[in-house]
């Protein structure tokens, strides 16, 4: 199996002390790796570093066997905060914004995959929390990346909604053969969706 992300001895300092030290990870094709740990331990920081949103102090990150030094970030994100949707754009417009080159057909297909066809002309304030997260997932998928980075995307949803979105995520992962790095503090969620679980202590 081909490694898509290889993290070796990753370290990150904050105020002189290491908050992350000697972290190793390999993400292969077509799998979901869950990074789990208690709140505040640095899971989101780790994901930000792997996603090139933050720099790291030690170690190496390889993307597809090479170091990423392109412009921007290597992989799209799905955030927990649903406020990152632009309130003045419809569902369809929010998704299309991040990839203007995406065809109308691929957009339709994606919106259907996340079950939002009937809601694509609505604005974020007209959507439930679960729907907003589905928009977030679709927005990441439209970037046509083989890897997604998901930072506690279902953390602010109720249990029933979380279970439904976990099922949706699994079906989408299977459909598009995605590799996903998924951060959560919920052990049950980690076991539900992860092929492998990395626990940070």
């Amino acid at each position: 199996m081909k490694p898509l992300i290889t993290v070796t001895k990753l370290g990150k300092k904050f105020g002189g002390d290491y908050i992350i030290k000697d972290f190793n990870l390999v993400l292969y094709e077509n799998e979901i790796v869950v990074i789990m740990g208690r709140s505040g331990i640095g899971k989101s920081t780790l994901l930000n570093i792997i996603g090139k949103l933050e720099p790291h102090d030690t170690g190496e990150i390889m993307y597809d066997d090479s170091v990423f030094d392109g412009i921007g970030v290597p992989f799209p994100f799905v955030f927990q905060e649903m406020e990152t949707l632009l309130p003045w754009k419809t569902v369809r417009q929010n998704i299309a914004l991040v990839n203007p080159k995406a065809s109308a057909d691929s957009l339709d297909d994606l919106i259907e995959s996340v079950g939002l066809t009937a809601h694509q002309d609505k604005y974020p304030h007209e959507l439930s929390g679960g729907m907003k997260q589905r928009v977030g997932i679709a927005r990441a998928l439209i970037c046509a990346s083989k890897v997604l980075l998901m930072d506690e995307p279902f953390g602010s949803l109720d249990r029933e909604m979380r279970l439904r979105l976990q099922e949706l995520l699994l079906s989408i992962q299977k459909k598009y053969a995605l590799s996903i790095l998924f951060v959560t503090h919920d052990e049950e969620e980690a076991k539900q969706i992860g092929n492998r679980i990395l626990t940070i202590e």
Partner: peptide, 26 residues
């Protein structure tokens, strides 16, 4: 509000300026 989104989804400066700041500042 949108700093993380801007970094995570690399929009061109013009698209960011128009779609986020021009439209968002109404």
């Amino acid at each position: 509000r949108y700093n993380r989104f801007e970094k995570a989804f690399v929009l061109s400066p013009l698209r960011r300026f128009y779609h986020i700041y021009c439209l968002g500042i109404t």
